[in-house]
């Protein structure tokens, strides 16, 4: 099989290039793209990429496979390869550190901007704060985010304004706390999101929904935030 891999070592290469590597796939065994990368790395140990849990929960190995963002460890080669060819690139839109490794600082800066932690100004009770199963169900589809960055780096609005548009991942987190019955800072949170960029740069093209490896729906969360903003502001 022909695999074309984005290679760039800042100390050596003036510009990144796609380098072809060929590899024999075992018969009758399904490989994930990460398995493929591990084999390629045995051929050429200088190939760099992030990986850890290899089961789709740590969010390390978000890459672009034949044009589509996803996690290498839970994406079968057969699902993304086209006519025996596979091109592997780093997540688009972020600075590349080396090969498939991108600099995610902008992504995490946006994450931190939404104050991604519970704020409750009441003194905590001796036990847990109570929350009904229905209230807790509001957090489903939000708290599962693994911060892999597949969504935000598939979003043109994030490409254009990575410093100002919070991006789908950050906004999913923002709504996760807005939706939490235990959080008391909704008004402040919304005020921080009111500017023309943070939320309103979302154009609803749903690339984020299309690529999310956990099947989450940031666009819906963004819609809910907009709804809250309208309700608060009018």
């Amino acid at each position: 099989m022909q695999v074309s891999v984005y290679r760039y070592d800042p100390d050596v290469d003036e510009a990144p290039q796609m380098r072809d590597m060929s590899i024999d796939l075992p018969e009758g065994k399904e490989l994930m793209v990460l398995d493929l990368l591990e084999r390629l790395k045995e051929q050429d140990p200088s190939l760099s990429y992030r990986r850890s849990c290899r089961e789709g929960v740590c969010g390390s190995d978000g890459i672009n496979m034949n044009g589509l963002n996803g996690l290498a460890c839970i994406t079968p080669v057969s699902q993304v390869a086209k006519r025996g060819k596979l091109a592997l690139r780093p997540l688009p839109g972020l600075p590349v550190i080396r090969d498939l490794v991108v600099d995610m600082s902008q992504f995490f800066d946006q994450f931190e901007k939404v104050r991604p932690y519970l704020i409750n100004d009441q003194p905590p009770p001796a036990q847990e704060r109570l929350q009904s199963p229905e209230e807790r169900a509001e957090l489903d589809g939000l708290y599962e985010c693994i911060l892999c960055g597949c969504c935000s780096t598939a979003c043109p609005s994030f490409w254009w304004n990575p410093d100002k548009f919070v991006g789908p991942a950050g906004l999913l987190q923002a709504y996760r706390f807005l939706a939490d019955s235990r959080d008391t800072a909704s008004a402040e949170r919304l005020r921080d999101l009111e500017d023309p960029f943070s939320v309103f740069r979302c154009r609803g093209i749903m690339n984020c929904v299309n690529v999310c490896p956990k099947g989450l729906n940031p666009t819906r969360a963004i819609g809910k935030i907009r709804g809250l903003l309208v309700r608060q502001g009018t």
């Binding site: 500017d195 960029f197 502001g233």
Partner: peptide, 15 residues
Amino acid sequence: TQVTSLARSGLADFL
């Protein structure tokens, strides 16, 4: 900054 946007608020722009 938002200075050059019409209403200085994304919400207002949106509305």
